[in-house]
């Protein structure tokens, strides 16, 4: 879990995201597929601007009732899924 939280993340160049009704819908140009994010995944996606997963979790901790450990687990899980789907990458130096 720590590895994904240590890594800075940004949207992949092939991911086209549009916010509809508060949540993100993402088109993956590479795979010609669409993913609709729920509320919490959308909140995480919004912060994927080059921050690490830990920084994202810390930012979210101030606005959610859940404890820091639970938030870190949720953030790690979402980042893993989005990275595996090719929608998130590490920023190019």
């Amino acid at each position: 879990m720590s590895e994904i939280l240590d890594r800075p993340v940004v949207a992949a160049p092939t991911a086209l995201a549009r916010e509809i009704d508060g949540n993100f819908t993402i088109y993956d140009k590479e795979n010609d597929s669409v993913m609709v994010l729920n509320d919490s995944a959308s909140a995480i996606w919004r912060l994927c601007d080059g921050r690490t997963g830990s920084a994202i979790a810390a930012e979210l901790a101030s606005g959610f009732a859940a404890g820091p450990d639970e938030i870190e687990r949720d953030v790690a899980s979402v980042l893993e899924q989005l990275t595996e789907s090719g929608l998130l990458v590490s920023p190019v130096d």
Binding site: L16, R18, I20, D21, N23, F24, T25, Y27, K29, D32, V34, V36
Partner: peptide, 29 residues
């Protein structure tokens, strides 16, 4: 939620109307 219909609309595009990224943007809007 309106976001749930974007994938369905994109899936149902006629062949020849698949400038997909542009179409996704148009449908999202």
């Amino acid at each position: 939620p309106p976001s749930e219909v974007v994938a369905e609309l994109l899936e149902r595009c006629f062949e020849g109307h698949q400038q997909r990224a542009g179409t996704f943007e148009l449908l999202s809007s």
